[in-house]
Amino acid sequence: MLEVKNLRKTYGDFTAVQGISFSLKPGDIFGFIGSNGAGKTTTIRMLATLLEPTSGTATLNGVDVVDQPMEIRRMIGYMPDFFGLYDDVKVWEYLDFFASIYGVSQRDKVIDEVLELTDLTIKKDAFVQSLSRGMQQRLCLARCLVHDPKLLLLDEPASGLDPRARAELKELIAELGRMGKIIIISSHILPELSDFCNSVGIIERGNLLAFGDVASVVRSIRPTKQINIEVLGDPDPAARFFASQTATRLGECSGNKLTIEFDGDESEQVELLKKALANEIKILSFAEDTANLEDVFMKLTTGAVS
């Protein structure tokens, strides 16, 4: 269990992180969203024991980040937003070096396991510098996993990767989540995060503007459903019909398309559609416009950086 309470970081008069709080349980994959300079990396570096918080606490399974950094370091895997690999060694040698630093027993077995998990077994004897960017990224992740950490801190793990490498990384992270690890991922690539994160936090100027599971965060900016309707022919009868219904409010109308805001549950939504068809409204399409993380992000943030 990771608990962050009022974590704050200041540099003189400048506040990089303004007392953020959240908690995560094993298996949670937390997407940390924010513009460049919003405070994501600073927060992650505080959790990684690389930066000393000005105030507030962060505990992982009851162990405090500041009081017992050595204990925390044994429990975390940190992947920064750059590779930082030794390029003059082979893949297994690189992992062996870090496994020995972490005091891993049965290093050969563990290395084989993490290589298999990250799909790098075939590259075991290749030099690190000969790997593609995607493979180097996976090797970084393999390094984070050699000591079986409880918490993974991944700072922009997908940046610079091609679509295939991103898809593979996404799959791998989801698998790690299923293994019960707490994963914090910072990213700008919002559609990707919503695919596999079960909770998100939006940060701007060091403030955590929203935190929760993806659906609840999306609902927080759009409490009512928005339904896009396309009709055949004259849209006026449809507009009149939907305007007259309870729990609906007519929104934009353009050509044969109209938008309504609907404040009902799914069964009521089905009933509304049935009623419209019974009233001979010629509906071509009737679909809920689900807000996504990008909408949430754009609505909540102003684009300002600290």
Binding site: L50, R73, G84, L85, I101, Y102
Partner: peptide, 14 residues
């Protein structure tokens, strides 16, 4: 320079 330093700093070593 190669930014591998952070990896050592977050390892459980003094």
């Amino acid at each position: 320079e190669r930014r591998s330093w952070d990896m050592l700093l977050v390892a459980p070593i003094s």
